[in-house]
Simulated assay, not measured.
Amino acid sequence: MADASRLPIRMLHDRVLVSLEREGGDRRSGGGILIPATASVGKRLSWAEVVAAGPAVRQVQVGDSVLFDPEERSEVELHGKDYVLLRERDLHAVAARRVEDEGTGLYL
């Protein structure tokens, strides 16, 4: 995870800055089958890690994993690394240890 305190940016309002967990490319199914990057099976959401959040963000924190639609994103480069800028309302789910403590798991 990138150290958010070292990023030369301050998030405003309900904006969330995320770092993609993995870029496109081949992936494996749960059963171990290799799925090539060229295979398309409908709309696929992506997971990313929150590296910075604005003051109006209520449901996610730095370090959380979030699920979002990669077609609805704005990219920014900071210190040679690409990040994605999203609004909190564009997130579909959050996965974090503190969420598990509340007993309901992922929020979809």
Rank of each mutant, 00 (worst) to 15 (best):
G25A: 03
D26P: 02
S46C: 09
L12S: 04
T38W: 03
P36V: 06
A39N: 03
G30W: 03
G25R: 05
G42H: 02
I33E: 11
V16E: 05
I33V: 10
R44L: 07
W47N: 14
S46H: 10
E23K: 06
G30R: 00
G42Q: 06
P36M: 02
I35P: 00
I33F: 05
S40I: 08
V18R: 01
W47P: 13
G32K: 02
E23A: 11
V41M: 00
A37S: 09
K43E: 05
W47I: 07
L45S: 09
A48T: 09
K43I: 03
S40M: 03
R27L: 13
G31K: 06
A37T: 05
L34V: 15
R44E: 13
G30H: 02
L20P: 14
G42I: 01
A48P: 05
K43N: 03
R28E: 15
D14C: 00
E21T: 14
T38C: 09
R27T: 15
H13M: 09
R22H: 13
L12V: 12
S19D: 12
P36H: 06
A39P: 00
L20Q: 15
V18F: 01
W47H: 15
G30S: 01
I33Q: 15
G25D: 10
W47F: 15
R28W: 14
R44F: 02
R44G: 03
R15Q: 12
G42K: 02
G30Q: 09
V18Q: 01
I35V: 09
V18H: 00
R15E: 12
A39D: 06
R15N: 09
S46K: 08
A37C: 04
R27S: 14
E21Y: 10
V41N: 00
D26A: 13
V16K: 07
V16R: 05
A39S: 09
S29N: 08
G32I: 01
K43T: 04
R22G: 08
V18I: 10
R22N: 08
E23C: 07
S29D: 07
L12E: 11
D26H: 10
R28G: 05
T38P: 05
V16L: 06
T38R: 07
R27D: 11
D26T: 08
S40L: 12
R28I: 10
G31M: 09
H13N: 11
L45V: 08
T38I: 01
S19M: 05
L17V: 09
L45N: 12
S46Q: 06
A48C: 08
G24W: 11
S40E: 10
S29R: 04
W47D: 15
L34E: 12
R27G: 10
R27W: 05
L34W: 04
A37K: 12
S29G: 10
W47T: 14
R28Y: 15
G30P: 03
V16G: 06
A39H: 11
L17A: 04
L12A: 08
G24E: 14
L17H: 01
A48D: 11
S46R: 07
L34A: 04
D14M: 00
V18K: 00
S29V: 02
W47K: 03
S46L: 14
R22Q: 06
I33K: 13
L45R: 00
G32V: 06
V18W: 01
A37H: 04
L12W: 01
W47S: 14
S46F: 14
G31H: 05
I35A: 01
E23G: 07
G25S: 09
